[in-house]
Write a protein that binds this DNA or RNA. Structure first.
Lengths: 201, 201
DNA sequence: CGCCATACTATACAACTGTACAGACGTTGG
DNA sequence: CCAACGTCTGTACAGTTGTATAGTATGGCG
């Protein structure tokens, strides 16, 4: 085998090997779960050897953390793509929601990974869910500073509402789809049912 | 070690070894996932050796199927515990819903296992979700025969509604709890947020 | 009693896991 | 030019996995 990127990482075929490994890991972790995904499977999908994964990330756990870090980055960048001044104050929140929804629907692997992460719920500080929650909290805080967001509820309540409405529908959709498929011939052409997920305080 | 149940399985300490294995498997599968649970862990939890699991169930896959079969049975029995004649026709459906909800809240492991099963979504016929869907469909069918259930929607739509409303809240609750915990000191004593899950056709 | 079916243990094994490590290659800085 | 460095491969290893199997004990039944 020829080595692809010797010396300083050039971007010959689109992506660094390190990035390709991380992307392949996200896809496989999302599809089959972290435990059920071997480093060898990741290596094969990324077109590298197991040794290189260890070289770049050290351990499987560290690779998982890198994947989660990338997901948080993805959220942060998406939110930052709709800065405070870009829309009338009363539309910022809605516009950010739309941006996040668009990002998620374009990255099924991210959604699938998140679903598993929340499910397994390690519940430890520094967790993926914790970090996303803090990101949401920061967003709520910013909007309040700008005098936009309501202060009728606590920040915690607003974060729960944002995250559950954003993610809840995505998590439950597979269940709806499964059952809809089950009765596909029966449902008539009435189309997919529409999910409603919300929280009340 | 002394063997516990020689010959015909007596019910010396509460349960057959075979049943203890199945229960232990349900608990561990629910808590950590099937893949992450070794037969040795199941054996230890059930107080038997690995060999006995193989003896009774053959393969890990067969053990998983036995666990799922037991779950379906649990649903079926719960529904059957509220027979058609036991309540006024217009209350049967609601009463059965209540019975299922009570059964689920008393069996956290079942809920957790179901959450994982739906998540992984093997999407194959004979699947756990498929079997539960068919159970729901049967229920809807029965209620229609008795002239109780509405025929305004298709059976498929009604099954989706039943399953999503039953299970959706249970699946999303961990997410809500996680975030609520994250902001526990912030939320004030406003109590846990209440989840709303529904489908519209 | 003798015999067999069953419940059960113990050990063994091949496959696969994550991790470690030695080295090959090409680039870069002095 | 050459030593140092980062990227990358290949192999090796100890631990764990699911499964197979040989063997032991025990109760029921002729």
């Amino acid at each position: 085998m020829a080595q692809r990127q010797p010396g300083v990482p050039t971007r010959a075929d689109d992506l660094t090997a390190k990035a390709r490994i991380r992307n392949a890991a996200l896809d496989l972790f999302a599809a089959h779960g972290v435990d059920a995904t071997s480093l060898r499977a990741v290596a094969a999908a990324a077109g590298v050897t197991v040794g290189l994964i260890v070289h770049h990330y050290g351990t499987k756990e560290a690779l998982r953390e890198a994947v989660e870090f990338a997901i948080v980055e993805q959220f942060a960048e998406t939110i930052a793509s709709v800065p405070l001044g870009s829309y009338p104050p009363d539309q910022i929140a809605a516009e950010r929601d739309r941006a996040v929804a668009a990002m998620l629907s374009a990255n099924q692997a991210t959604v699938d990974y998140l679903r598993r992460a929340i499910l397994d719920g390690s519940a430890q500080r520094g967790d993926l869910v914790s970090r996303l929650s803090r990101l949401s909290a920061q967003q709520v805080h910013d909007l309040r500073e700008a005098g936009v967001a309501s202060t009728k509820h606590t920040v915690g309540e607003q974060v729960v509402t944002i995250m559950v409405r954003q993610l809840g529908r995505l998590f439950l959709q597979p269940l709806v789809d499964r059952i809809a498929d089950e009765f596909a011939d029966d449902t008539g052409a009435s189309g997919r049912p529409h999910l409603v997920v919300d929280v009340s305080h």
